[in-house]
Nucleic acid binder design. Sequence first.
DNA 1: GTGTCCGTGTAGCATGACTACATGCTGGAT
DNA 2: ATCCAGCATGTAGTCATGCTACACGGACAC
Lengths: 298, 298
Amino acid sequence: MLDLERLRALNAVATYGSVSAAADVLHVTTSAVSQQVAKLERETGQKLLERNGRGVRLTDAAALLAAHAERILSMVEAAESDLEAHRGAVVGELAVAAFPTAARGLMPPALSLMAVEHPRLTVTLRELEPHSSVPLAARGEIDLGIVQDWFNVPLAIPDGLVKAPLLDDVADVALPAGHPLADRDVIDLAGMRGEAWIAQSAGAICREWLEHTLRTASLEPRINHTADEYATQLALVAAGLGCAVIPRLGRCDVPPGVRIVAVRPALTRHVYGVWRAEAARRPAIRAAVAALRAAAGA
Amino acid sequence: MLDLERLRALNAVATYGSVSAAADVLHVTTSAVSQQVAKLERETGQKLLERNGRGVRLTDAAALLAAHAERILSMVEAAESDLEAHRGAVVGELAVAAFPTAARGLMPPALSLMAVEHPRLTVTLRELEPHSSVPLAARGEIDLGIVQDWFNVPLAIPDGLVKAPLLDDVADVALPAGHPLADRDVIDLAGMRGEAWIAQSAGAICREWLEHTLRTASLEPRINHTADEYATQLALVAAGLGCAVIPRLGRCDVPPGVRIVAVRPALTRHVYGVWRAEAARRPAIRAAVAALRAAAGA
DNA sequence: GTGTCCGTGTAGCATGACTACATGCTGGAT
DNA sequence: ATCCAGCATGTAGTCATGCTACACGGACAC
């Protein structure tokens, strides 16, 4: 492997025309330059300098190598300045995971914003539930996790992760159009005693929250159908098979036969970002959080 | 000024994912790699590696610098290759790897030829399967790899490597002398339904090719003995334990009790050389390829 | 010839890169 | 909970390498 310092010596000789001028420029003695070029000759197996009167002349090989050296050295310099410019800049790669409704309701505008403001940052998105994304964030497999919890069921965040709120999202109740409460402007949960519910399957955060919330309101949860995707839940509601709680964030079009009614007091979930404490200073993460908040406010 | 060796260390860490893997590839201790990167951190004033579990992860700055390093190192290599091409003389060292039958059927005459025509070139040979030699060639640990694939199962060549065909080799079937088909001049595969086969162990290129070929001919591969060396396969055939596919290149003496029969259509494998694109102009490589082709034609 | 300029070779010193070994931390197995 | 293996980092010592200072030899000008 060629050595950069030697290439620099050769290039200086080529540029300034003599060993002594090159030595001046490089702030070393002529002897040092001479030795460097001599080593380059030994390494490449080719004669590079020939005596010419009181000075030296470059051989063809030396001219060729010096031309390469010129380009290589300028690339190295570009790398240095790029690295210097990077100090505090938003560049590189950022792996983000978001739960489904955030992935479609929050990420697209945030990604667009970042693409404009930080074109040198490559963001990759995975749709993951918090119980998957939190451990992945903890061990650094993703850089940023978009997670949620409900106001009355906080999500456990392990040590080493920090979180910051992004937005609060309100959920409404979806009722079949023919339901007695379907035309109200707002209802309260206590009025829903005895209803059949459609919810996520057991273990999902929203399911556990729903059960917990209903029990808190002294209603026994009766969940007779499960579907992880809200579009499916809405189709089940439209078929008159029960009620469902549908967050506003990332809500899809509501099919005919479904009425959306607000709940009092509001059912609120908190959406926030989590990332490794060690990575907290990464400009990319700060930029992503800023973009997510801007997208949430819009 | 950044140092090439340090960039190489960082790039190896980026490429191979850990300090210890990089140390292996660079043939130094982990301590050396760690110290090199630490110095790079001091020089650039930026953190490059952070601990991540038992390993390390690259910071954004490190990823950026590694990407630059990749390009710079490839330019340096191109400069070396160009300089060698300028000289035109075939001298120096050339590390070649060849799969077994090529190592004995193709390399000896090629090496003899090169010894005569290019006495100042020192060629060293390693016997390696393509799946070993291709990555070694990709990272420059060998200069030239002699690899093979079968006409119907092409070998994947990573970016940065170029290939050139050397010869096409035909394989025949080895049968026990008492086999009903043993006295044919030529047979076709479809006539071998139900035969027991002897082949390389699982994972070998020839083994996978045989299974693929038999399946293509609607024959279920029944491989009841495995042996990586053809001499062993032939001994098993001689003992009447099955049939085997034996290439002509590098074929050893056929023991008594074995008949070699051609197959129609011919079973053909392609043998070619692979080397790094950056080194393509090296006269040593061009000379080696020429010698290999001469040896193949002889 | 003599002096001056320039590049090369040699000796000695200082820097720095590598290895061997010890240490610290992590994650999985018992 | 404990032990163990894997990985990275830190330290001391050795060895290689680059530098300077200085001596030397060829080339041009007078």
